[in-house]
């Protein structure tokens, strides 16, 4: 510590140690924050139509077009270390060739930021202003974890590798989430209870059967 350069090195060296320890403590503080999410998801409407995977494709596949309602309370997931939460709804059905595997495809998703991460949202300037104003003066905003969707159209129309999904039985909608922290590991919807982290309450719809293919009028010309 005899000269300025040595003192800079010493102070910076210990600063990195302190920063690492504080970061580890922040990551660990997640474990004592209870996570008690609940969700209710229900099918509203479903039809199966034929379409192409992309514009230049000559392949025709069947797509399930789903409408659903979702009422979820994920507010307990918002703590000081939450950067954003990724919520997604999937449709899953049993595999015809295996009892252990299931087919699962995401039909809808959304990103909910904590106010500390609002500037990272990929939205236009007007929506950004509105978002930032909605949480003015708040460091965390658990009310953003309350989702009420009625008759929501799916973002993604789903199909199966075979291209056939009509009349598939035992399809369920499931709610999943990811918690992305500022410091620490990304956590997925827990499959087991882990300390104060509870499994999602509800979050699975009643099983339903996809309807037969809806025949469009244009197709009769072929």
């Amino acid at each position: 510590m005899h000269s300025s350069v040595v003192r800079i090195q010493n102070v910076f060296g210990f600063f990195t140690t302190v920063a690492f320890v504080v970061a580890a403590l922040i990551a660990a503080s997640d474990l004592i924050a209870p996570r008690t999410p609940s969700a209710n998801v229900a099918l509203k409407d479903v039809q199966v139509v034929r379409g192409r995977p992309h514009y230049y494709s000559s392949k025709k596949e069947e797509y399930a077009v789903i409408k659903f309602s979702l009422s979820a309370d994920l507010s307990s997931l918002f703590t000081w270390n939450t950067k954003q939460i990724f919520v997604y709804v999937s449709a899953s059905w049993p595999n015809s060739t295996s009892t252990e595997l299931t087919n699962e495809a995401v039909i809808w998703d959304t990103i909910i930021t904590n106010p500390s991460a609002d500037h990272l949202q990929n939205i236009g300037p007007v929506a950004m202003k509105k978002l930032i104003r909605s949480a003015k003066g708040k460091s965390i905003d658990p009310s953003r974890g309350k989702i009420e969707l009625k008759n929501q159209k799916a973002k993604y129309q789903i199909t199966a590798p075979t291209g056939k999904v009509a009349e598939t039985d035992n399809v369920v909608l499931r709610v999943h989430y990811n918690v992305q922290p500022w410091v620490g590991i990304l956590t997925w919807t827990p499959q087991i209870e882990f300390g104060s982290w509870k499994k999602i309450k509800g979050g699975v719809s009643k099983a339903f059967k996809l309807p037969p293919l809806k025949v469009k009028k244009e197709e009769k010309k072929e």
């Binding site: 922040i26 000081w80 270390n81 500390s116 460091s139």
Partner: peptide
């Protein structure tokens, strides 16, 4: 380091 963690934790403000 201790102050920053304690203040951040109790005010729930990571920034």
């Amino acid at each position: 380091g201790a102050i920053s963690f304690i203040v951040g934790f109790f005010l729930q403000d990571i920034k």
